[in-house]
Simulated scan of single mutants.
Amino acid sequence: MPSAIAKKMITFSLVSIPVSVYPATSQHRVPLHMVHEADGGRVRQRRVCEIDGRELSEGEIARGVEMPDGGTLVLSRQDLEQLPTPDTKEIRVLGFLDESRVDPLHYDKSYYLGVSPGGERPYALLRAALAESGQVAIARTALRTRDSLAVLHVRDQVITMTTLLWPDEVRGTEGIALRPIELRPEEVALARQLMDTISADFDPDREQDEYTVALREVVEARMAGLPAPHVPEARVLPPAAGVTDLMAVLEAAVQKAQEEHPKAAAKRPAKKTVAKKARASRRSEG
């Protein structure tokens, strides 16, 4: 069990629930250091002033912003201390929404909220209310002085908090969105059949970070004095552009998916007629 990183109080109206905040995620990357290739010596990053060339201690470092004329405005500790400090002890519930109304693009970091002594009944009450309603709570809190909106929802009988990016931190899609393209119903139907076939036996819990697994195997082999293991060649990607007959590509993709997922194909015998209908439609158009 990870160590709690903070103790807080969930509040909504007159109800208060003492909780402990635990990190819900952890990175499993192999820690690679920067080293001198010739002798393996560690390469350290030093904090050096670009004006006088001196290496600085933590106490000599302040915060600053670049001014329009290219100069630097140095902010003193007094400047920063005068800023309004967010309440780091409270998780204040602002309201409740259907989870579908929260854009996943705003999700930032996730935490588990474990109940602290004395808060068992109100914690269980909020947990039950969230689970039965299918809604999430939108709250406001601060972690390490950063003020954030957050979503509270239930996972495995534990109230989970996911902090959100502020609306102005999410970039718009201007200049990226695709222009309107008219698609034939047969193309959409084949795409849906392909989606269903691929997804029928898909389990995200079986997926793993293949790069990290391979890197660990390389490190373990080298530590044991063995040559690095063979790394499988990269998968051949389909053409990135120039598709002249999208229907033919979709039909071939559906057939290949049915061969790779025979159980999924067996469950959907009726949908095999989609490709035949599409081919008939193309012949009639020709």
Rank of each mutant, 00 (worst) to 15 (best):
M1K: 13
P2A: 14
S3Y: 07
K8T: 05
K8V: 10
K8H: 08
M9L: 15
I10H: 03
I10M: 02
F12L: 14
F12S: 03
L14Y: 05
V15I: 15
S16L: 05
I17Y: 02
P18M: 10
P23T: 02
A24N: 06
T25L: 11
Q27Y: 04
R29K: 12
V30T: 15
G40D: 06
G40W: 07
V43C: 04
E50M: 06
I51S: 13
I51P: 00
G53A: 06
R54H: 15
E55M: 11
S57K: 14
G59R: 12
E60G: 02
I61L: 10
R63A: 08
G64N: 05
E66W: 02
D69K: 03
G71L: 01
V74M: 09
S76D: 12
T85I: 10
K89R: 15
L94M: 13
G95F: 01
G95I: 01
R101S: 14
V102C: 05
D103Q: 07
L105D: 09
H106T: 14
H106S: 13
D108G: 06
S110I: 01
Y112L: 07
Y112Q: 05
G114F: 05
S116N: 07
G118Q: 06
G119I: 09
P122V: 01
L125R: 04
L126G: 02
A128D: 15
A129G: 06
A129N: 03
E132N: 13
E132H: 12
S133H: 04
Q135I: 00
Q135H: 09
I138F: 01
A139M: 06
A139T: 08
R140D: 08
T141G: 08
T141V: 04
A142G: 06
A142T: 07
T145F: 09
D147E: 15
V154C: 05
R155I: 05
I159Q: 08
I159M: 07
M161I: 08
T163A: 04
L164Q: 05
L164P: 08
L165T: 01
W166R: 09
P167E: 10
E169V: 00
V170I: 15
R171I: 06
R179C: 01
P180F: 02
E182I: 07
L183T: 11
L190S: 02
L194H: 04
L194M: 03
M195S: 14
D196P: 00
F202A: 14
P204G: 04
R206G: 13
E207T: 15
Q208F: 15
Q208Y: 14
D209M: 03
E210W: 11
V213N: 08
A214M: 14
A214Q: 15
R216N: 11
R216C: 05
E217I: 00
V219E: 02
V219Q: 04
E220W: 00
E220V: 09
R222S: 04
R222C: 02
P227Q: 08
P232L: 07
E233F: 01
E233S: 12
A234I: 06
P238D: 04
P239M: 01
T244S: 13
T244I: 12
T244E: 14
L246S: 03
L246V: 13
E251N: 04
E251P: 00
A252H: 10
V254P: 03
Q258F: 00
H261K: 10
P262E: 00
P262N: 00
A265E: 01
A265N: 01
A266Q: 12
K267C: 00
P269M: 10
K271C: 03
T273R: 14
V274Y: 09
V274F: 08
K276Q: 14
S284I: 08
E285R: 15
E285G: 02
